[in-house]
Design a protein around this nucleic acid. Structure first.
Lengths: 193, 193
DNA sequence: GTGTTATTATACCAATCGGTATAGAGACTG
DNA sequence: CAGTCTCTATACCGATTGGTATAATAACAC
């Protein structure tokens, strides 16, 4: 019962630190203090482990994003709240999201990519909808909703990546509000703002 | 003599499609039509192969970016030229850059990350310098050069990734000028422009 | 107490991993 | 011709890969 969670926790940490393909099943179970049959009993395969890992954590991530996106504020306020979801480290949120990204970049023929791609697309669609729902604020977007969404996600992702890089191996990553607001503001009004 | 290039070409394709860790040395040499000792003669190790692969291609990428960044235009013009370097598929440029990114996201304890991190940092510094050199256009940036640079790179990367994803397995990826200009313009003047 | 089910460890599998020892082949130098 | 140097193939190395067959353990219902 508890072994299941231990395996998932170990796997998340190892995948996040070394990459999905660079981590062996043996290493995961050792880190979790169990043996291989236990892992294969719960998850069936290494891929199955990754799938449930992503799925379970993604639910919460999506919920958080959706919640932030449905708040009663103007677009900048919404984007700020969404950004905060990404920069707020709920200990596992960041690791999951970075794993998602890493696998998304890992090449289309990679097993991890195939697992992760649909989830990334769902995130993209959520962001596109944010801009569509702000049509009254933005006016005619001339079909550029997707461009807006991709740009915004890209900005968030890269800032996140750089933060993780700067912080080194530190566990906690805290991003001050003003910095998040600065990023959103620049996105909204350009770099002259 | 030619075997060396064949190995590098095969490795680049395989790493790009399946990820560094998911590709075995055996697969590389088979794809190149040689045997393992040939690879180890030229590159010493799998890591050595990756290092020379990145190094050789990076030189050209950096040259192209630097060239675009030194043109005699205003900032939007410069950014447009730089963006074009990224979106112009010189058959190998995109593959190399995406490999660079994939490894950068792959986790700090990953072998590939350690190889690639210094190159990504060099790219970042180049972008930061672009904004610093535009101080006369931008005025006092209040130390936000790095934020500008990271945001811009993030926007480019994610657009690139999405393009590759939309195009599927197609070899050639052509991005119309207007789209590139749209992205740069949004970055410069915000989404109301 | 017996049967059933879920969970776990021991021990194993073929296949592949990155890497190499040895030696042959070819080109060039003396 | 002998010697040397670069390059490459055969065949191999120990270690690890993802995965499993078997059986023991424990908890449960009856």
């Amino acid at each position: 019962m508890d072994n299941r969670k231990a395996i998932m926790e170990s796997a998340l940490n190892l995948f996040y630190q070394k990459g999905y393909d660079a981590v062996g099943v043996q290493e995961i179970v050792e880190c979790a203090g169990v043996t291989k049959p236990t892992l294969y009993h719960y998850f069936g395969s290494k891929r199955g482990l990754l799938e449930t890992l992503i799925q379970v954590h993604y639910e919460e991530l999506e919920k958080n994003i959706r919640c932030a996106a449905e708040c009663e504020e103007n677009l900048p306020g919404k984007l700020y709240r969404v950004a905060r979801v990404f920069f707020d480290d709920n200990s596992s949120n960041i690791r999951v999201y970075m794993l998602l990204l890493a696998l998304f970049y890992s090449g289309r023929k990679n097993e991890g990519f195939q697992v992760v791609a649909p989830f990334v697309q769902r995130i993209c669609r959520m962001f596109i909808r944010i801009f569509e729902n702000a049509a009254d604020e933005l006016g005619n977007m001339h079909g550029r909703q997707k461009q807006f969404a991709i740009s915004f996600i890209g900005v968030l992702d890269y800032h996140l990546m750089m933060l993780i890089n700067d912080y080194g191996d530190a566990e906690e990553i805290s991003v001050p509000d003003e910095q998040v607001r600065g990023v959103v503001q620049q996105f909204m009004y350009g770099i002259y703002s």
